[in-house]
Amino acid sequence: MNWKSIQKHYPSQWVLAEAVEARSEGGKRILSQLAVLDTYPDSLSAMRSYKMFHKKCPGREFYVLHTDRRELSVEERRWVGIRGIR
């Protein structure tokens, strides 16, 4: 689903989504297709769920988003050091 359809199908809530189709452009991550894994009443429960999914699958690209968010703008950074260790 694209962000507009997600906003329509899951109005005014927190979602955990996985990038299905994404590309990097000028320091931004452009998410053209996302799959919603679950919905949450608050950001803490969404982040806790993210933690669990991320621990199991560190290579998959998950996002915690509120569907009232104005713009789906994601900054992209590259890092080595401890943050690359798994």
Binding site: P58, W79, G84
Partner: peptide
């Protein structure tokens, strides 16, 4: 502002 961080072993939100 949300970010995705790419490291050696994976990606982090």
């Amino acid at each position: 502002v949300i970010c995705t961080v790419f490291g050696i072993g994976g990606t982090e939100f």
